[in-house]
């Protein structure tokens, strides 16, 4: 692991226009409605590490993932991969080369594999597209190797996706992600569509591959248990903003932001320590009309007038006035 950050995300922003069609809007005298899905997110990932983005539904984590891989144009900010900005006019040739190093594993393995294609062709597509291997024999051989790597049989290349279970399909998706020798994989909730019993297998496979191939992951999840198993560093997202970024161990041991604490308090306690669970209070507000100031203030027990008026800037990985002012009570010892 080098100190050189492979991925640098700076002040990433994305707004979606969710207004009604022009005619309807004009007739109803409504203004445009913009949804700030991602609002100034910055983080960096070092080679070989796993950066996890956690947050409730609608916090913008998938949008960040799609912007990082280039499926979605950012409205503002910048994604740099190996120092090369992925947006803007210059560096087109370098960007094409870098594209090959970035792959994505999608949430739903039933939608991410073309149902009409054989598994061998699905895995072969990036191999061909990036010219890793040209002739049919080499592509087949490479696809077979990849299937073996993810724990499937090379003969499975002749089958269609519907002949596989969810976990096996996700293995195929992983094989495809690795097909062009990519070393940065964005995983958008890769296990949330799977049975609990299969989730662990897939996560172990991903960790195993990371160790063997030196992969770097951007790992999106709403499941803190999964994140604990995978992440080096964790970023907690709330309404399009990163509220806390900390090394995984530290975040679980000593969460600082009130929102992080709330999430951790809601995690089921497998040790049966008898500590009372506090369910997550309230719901994430609409990103179309977010609360003023710190967007978390309506759900935060520590909010004061400053929180309602002024958006906090991240200080030492935490964006919270209460933390900055030392108003957050000491954490109970047991955590």
């Amino acid at each position: 692991m080098t100190e050189f950050p492979l991925i640098e995300v700076t002040d990433l922003r994305r707004t979606f226009d969710v207004s009604k069609p022009w005619l309807e809007r004009t007739l109803a005298r409504e203004s445009r409605q913009l949804l700030k899905a991602v609002d100034g997110v910055s983080f960096h990932i070092r080679k070989g590490e796993t950066f996890a983005l956690v947050g409730e539904s609608g916090s913008g984590k998938s949008t960040v993932a799609r912007m990082v891989v280039g499926l979605l144009e950012p409205s503002g900010g910048e994604v740099r991969i190996a120092g090369v900005p992925m947006t803007g006019g210059s560096h087109a040739a370098e960007r094409r080369r870098l594209r090959r190093r970035i792959q994505m594993i999608f949430q739903d393995p039933f939608a991410s594999l073309d149902p009409r294609w054989r598994v061998g062709d699905i895995i072969g597509e990036p191999i061909r597209a990036f010219g890793v291997a040209e002739n049919r024999r080499d592509v087949t051989a490479r696809a077979g190797e990849l299937l073996r790597l993810v724990g499937l049989d090379p003969a499975d290349a002749q089958k269609f996706p519907h002949e596989f279970s969810g976990g096996q399909r996700q293995r195929i998706a992983i094989a495809r992600a690795l097909a062009a020798d990519s070393d940065f994989i964005v995983c958008d909730e890769p296990t949330s569509a799977l049975d609990v019993s299969v989730q662990a297998q897939i996560l172990n496979l991903m960790r195993d591959l990371q160790d063997r191939l030196g992969l770097t992951y951007l790992f999106i999840s709403h499941n803190l248990a999964v994140v604990r198993h995978m992440a080096t560093t964790i970023g907690v997202m709330y309404l399009g903003r990163l509220v806390e970024v900390a090394p995984a161990r530290q975040l679980f041991a000593a969460p600082r932001h009130p929102y992080t604490r709330m999430l951790l308090d809601a995690v089921p306690d497998l040790a049966m320590s008898g500590r009372p669970r506090t369910p997550v209070q309230g719901e994430i507000p609409s990103p179309i009309s977010p609360p003023s100031g710190c967007t978390f203030h309506p759900r935060c027990g520590l909010a004061n007038d400053r929180c309602r008026a002024e958006a906090p800037a991240p200080i030492d990985g935490v964006a919270c006035h209460a933390v900055a002012e030392g108003r957050v009570p000491e954490l109970r010892a047991s955590a």
Binding site: V69, G70, L71, R96, R99, I102, Q103, M104, F106, Q107, D108, A111, S112, L113, D114, P115, R116, W117, E125, P126, A129, F130, A173, R176, A180
Partner: peptide, 25 residues
């Protein structure tokens, strides 16, 4: 659907995606 996104991700041009992925489906 994600399989189309996956094809976009590896830089397959849109006409080819339409022909090889979308049309058969």
């Amino acid at each position: 659907k994600d399989y189309v996104q996956a094809a976009r991700l590896i830089g397959i041009p849109a006409p080819l995606i339409l022909l090889k992925h979308v049309l058969p489906n």
